[in-house]
Simulated scan of single mutants.
Amino acid sequence: MAKKKIPMRKDIVTGEMFPKKELVRVVKNKENEVSLDPTGKKQGRGAYIRLDVPVAKQAQTDKVFDKTFGVKIDPSFYEELIAYVDHQVARMELFGDGK
């Protein structure tokens, strides 16, 4: 049986490539609204960030998504991102998978 190819994506904070399951997608839609996309299927331009709290905090400090999407993003979005990443990391540690 052939090995299944693992999709890789680039973390926009560190610039490193990671398996898609280890990242969370952030998407900007046509109305310039930026939101988390846990399913990876929302319409719009997407960017990925690794499921790592220090990386999410660095994204907040550097305003990475403001620069990437070219729009002013509310600071509460970064707080939501950090909380989501923290939750997902705890979940992976507890259950041993990304689901």
Rank of each mutant, 00 (worst) to 15 (best):
A2C: 02
M8T: 06
V71H: 02
I82Y: 04
R9F: 14
R9V: 12
T61R: 00
I73E: 03
G96K: 11
L81G: 06
K5S: 08
A59W: 00
N32G: 05
H87V: 01
K63A: 13
P38A: 13
P38H: 13
G44N: 07
L94R: 09
N29E: 12
A59D: 04
T14S: 14
Q58F: 01
V26L: 14
D97E: 09
Q60A: 04
K67Q: 08
V26A: 08
K28N: 10
R45T: 08
M1T: 09
Y78H: 03
D97Y: 11
Q88H: 00
I12F: 03
L94Y: 00
K72R: 06
D11H: 00
M1D: 07
G96S: 15
V85P: 02
I73G: 08
R45M: 10
K30T: 15
N29Y: 12
V64L: 09
D74Y: 03
Q58I: 06
I49E: 04
K41G: 06
E31Q: 09
P75T: 13
D52M: 01
Y84I: 00
D62T: 10
T39I: 09
L36Y: 08
K5P: 02
D11T: 02
K67R: 11
V24F: 03
M1F: 02
D74A: 04
D66T: 00
V64P: 05
D62S: 05
R50Y: 10
K30Q: 08
K10C: 09
K99D: 09
D66C: 08
T68G: 01
A90H: 05
Q58E: 12
G98H: 12
V71N: 09
S76M: 03
V55C: 13
A56D: 05
K5R: 13
F77K: 15
T68R: 12
T68V: 15
F69S: 12
I73L: 11
G96R: 14
E31S: 10
T68Q: 05
R45D: 02
P75F: 08
G98A: 15
E22T: 05
A56Y: 03
G44M: 13
K72M: 06
V26S: 05
A56C: 09
K3Q: 14
Y78I: 07
P19I: 09
G96L: 08
D86M: 00
K4R: 14
K63W: 07
G40T: 03
G98Y: 15
A59I: 02
R9M: 15
K4G: 01
Y84T: 02
P7W: 13
K4Y: 05
V27Q: 10
A47Y: 07
V64M: 06
K41P: 09
D97W: 10
D37C: 11
V13Y: 01
K4W: 04
V13K: 07
L51S: 11
L51R: 15
R25L: 10
M1S: 08
G96Y: 06
D97Q: 09
H87N: 13
D37K: 03
A2M: 07
V89W: 01
K57E: 13
Q58R: 06
F77R: 07
V64E: 08
V53P: 03
V64G: 03
K42A: 15
E22S: 12
K21E: 05
D74M: 11
H87W: 04
D97N: 15
F95Q: 11
T14G: 04
